[in-house]
């Protein structure tokens, strides 16, 4: 039953939620709503398990004095500290948790992401070469879109923003739509495999 029960749960839940889309019967609607509510509860519970897992894995590495153990200590102290502050003092405006979040984590994350601009510029300088026809088309397209999407593009040539919009609205759109449709077909196929019990990878089992 250790293998069968999760598959039965997945198949039954999947079919009920799917049927709710097509068959407007109260009994199916009620069951579907219950399953959706259970999913929300399970999603929240997975955060607790995730937090415990991060704590346990890092604590074990610190005890073994693995490489980078001092960084793991920082992780553990921050994890325990923020969790403690949030649980004991709340997370609303005026709490210590919120102060640390707004004044330490928010600026640090924003800064880390902003630094990407510098690395992208450096990487573009070194890697963006017109080595062949395809690379040339890519580079010219990138230049048009980069300039067309900022005021400078319109100041250089009034047709540049329109050209940029055309590139985004036609060739790029066609490719994007192909990707979206392809991904949707793939997702549908995977979902069908799940609700007929063929796909078992999520249980760590062979097909």
């Amino acid at each position: 039953m250790k293998k069968e029960l999760p598959i039965i749960l997945c198949v039954v839940s999947g079919w009920i939620v799917l049927l709710d889309f097509f068959i407007p019967k109260p009994v199916i609607g009620t069951l579907s709503r219950a399953i959706v509510d259970w999913t929300l509860i399970l999603s929240a519970a997975s955060f607790v398990m995730g937090g415990m897992s991060v704590f346990a894995v890092n604590l074990a590495r610190v005890r073994r004095r693995d490489s980078g153990a001092r960084y793991r200590v920082v992780v553990l102290v921050c994890l325990a500290g923020m969790a403690g502050l949030g649980i004991l003092g709340g997370i609303g405006e005026g709490t210590a948790y919120n102060w640390i979040f707004q004044n330490v984590q928010v600026p640090m994350e924003s800064t880390m992401f902003s630094l990407l601009a510098f690395f992208i510029a450096s990487a573009a300088f070194r890697a963006f070469r017109m080595r062949n026809a395809q690379a040339t088309v890519l580079l010219l397209t990138a230049a048009v879109v980069m300039l067309g999407n900022v005021p400078l593009g319109g100041a250089i040539w009034s047709g540049l923003p329109s050209l940029s919009s055309w590139l985004l609205g036609h060739p790029s759109l066609a490719a994007q739509r192909g990707l979206i449709v392809g991904a949707a077909v793939g997702a549908t196929a995977t979902a069908l495999r799940l609700i007929v019990g063929v796909e078992r990878g999520y249980l760590g089992l062979r097909q």
């Binding site: 573009a124 300088f125 963006f128 070469r129 017109m130 580079l139 980069m146 300039l147 900022v150 005021p151």
Partner: peptide, 24 residues
């Protein structure tokens, strides 16, 4: 910020153009 973004894009394009000129 739009002026800053315009200038940053221009700087990147100038760097890429210089890199390509040197390459050719």
């Amino acid at each position: 910020g739009m002026d800053a973004q315009s200038m940053a894009h221009l700087a990147i394009l100038i760097l890429v153009a210089a890199g390509n000129a040197a390459f050719f």
